[in-house]
Simulated assay, not measured.
Amino acid sequence: MTKICQLSLAVGARVHGVDLATDMSESTWSEIRNAFQQHSVLVFPGQNITVEQQKRFAERFGTLIVHDHLLPMTIEGHPECMVLHNNAQKPPGLNSWHTDNSGWLEPPLGTVLYAKITPRLGGDTLYSNMHAAYEALSPQIRDMLEGLKAVHDVKKAFGPDFANLQASLRKKGIDPNSHFGQFEPVEHPIVRTHPDTGKKSLYVSAPYITHIAGLSVLESRAILDLLYKHIETNEFVYRHRWHTGDLVVWDNRSVQHLAVADYHPQERLMHRMNIKGERPF
């Protein structure tokens, strides 16, 4: 029997009684889908699944994305599955709040991450509820943000500010400067509306954003710094301590996450899949 237990007052729920290695009934999927809309982050502990079984579950949420620049980091025959493998020779890269791939015109709906090897200590992932973050702003600030759009640029997220990411790509034969040079910046609303729930949330992904459209650099920085600090508020955050066999799926439209890079030189091995989303509105 499926049992869904809330993990924190902020965001997240743990799902018991579901074996993702087996076929899922429509009634079970309905419970999971409803829980996903309600809690935004779902944890399925103690899973023992193959890449195919992870893919089958992820495809329940939508079409999986194949990222050209990540192909050298995927499993052979499974271009949708990125291998996140860190150890003594490969320290973790990104260590900041973000939502996945916001620099694309249609960012991912969600992310499905499966823990194959976890460090003895460290390597947690933090999730912040962007619905709660929006609601906690004063009416005056919410009114000011309505209609504003932030400029997201892939080149910034894979630029010199993120040297570890650049190094990882270069080791796989991809030059970030030439590969991402073709990408044009995109504009996304700072306050976006969830297409399923209708709720409003903040959508500010710091690694990608260069400025706010129509504002000066000084004005943009003042507003963005305020929002970046705001989303870190403890009351919005759930901290997940990973265990081998955990599968976590989260909604990139309503949460931001931060993978804490505190476990080097221990080993951490994850399989990640992104679900195709829509253009934010």
Rank of each mutant, 00 (worst) to 15 (best):
L126M: 10
E235A: 14
A213H: 13
A259D: 09
P265G: 11
T244Y: 05
A150H: 00
G77K: 11
R221I: 14
A21H: 05
R279Q: 14
S102Q: 08
C81H: 06
K171H: 15
S201A: 14
Y127T: 05
Q256L: 13
G181V: 04
L148S: 02
L126H: 13
Q38V: 05
S25K: 07
V66S: 05
P119Q: 04
T210A: 08
V248F: 01
D68E: 15
F158D: 05
Q256K: 10
K199H: 11
S40V: 10
D143I: 00
L137H: 01
S220R: 12
L169P: 03
P107A: 06
G123V: 05
V217F: 12
H264V: 04
T28W: 02
T63N: 13
E80T: 06
R14Q: 15
A88Y: 05
L215S: 01
L148K: 01
M24D: 12
Y238W: 12
G198V: 06
R279Y: 09
E187N: 12
E26N: 13
H152R: 00
R253W: 10
W250C: 08
I209L: 09
W250D: 08
N86A: 06
F183P: 00
D143W: 00
E267I: 08
R279K: 15
M273K: 03
S96W: 12
E146S: 04
V255T: 12
K229W: 15
Q89N: 14
H39C: 08
S128D: 05
F162N: 09
S8I: 09
E31D: 12
V217I: 13
L126N: 07
G173M: 10
S254T: 15
H98G: 06
G93E: 11
L227V: 08
H39P: 07
A261Q: 10
L105N: 09
P108Y: 03
N234W: 14
E267A: 11
M24Q: 11
E31A: 09
R192L: 11
Y208Q: 10
T193G: 01
E106A: 12
Q166R: 15
S8V: 02
Q47L: 00
P160V: 15
P189K: 04
V112K: 00
A259P: 00
I174C: 06
D153S: 08
H69T: 11
E59F: 02
A133E: 02
I223R: 07
G103C: 03
G173P: 07
R33E: 14
S216K: 07
P107H: 04
A58E: 02
F180E: 07
F180R: 06
S40W: 13
T197A: 12
L64T: 02
M130T: 03
L113T: 03
H39G: 03
P189M: 07
S102C: 12
I174G: 01
H179N: 03
T244F: 02
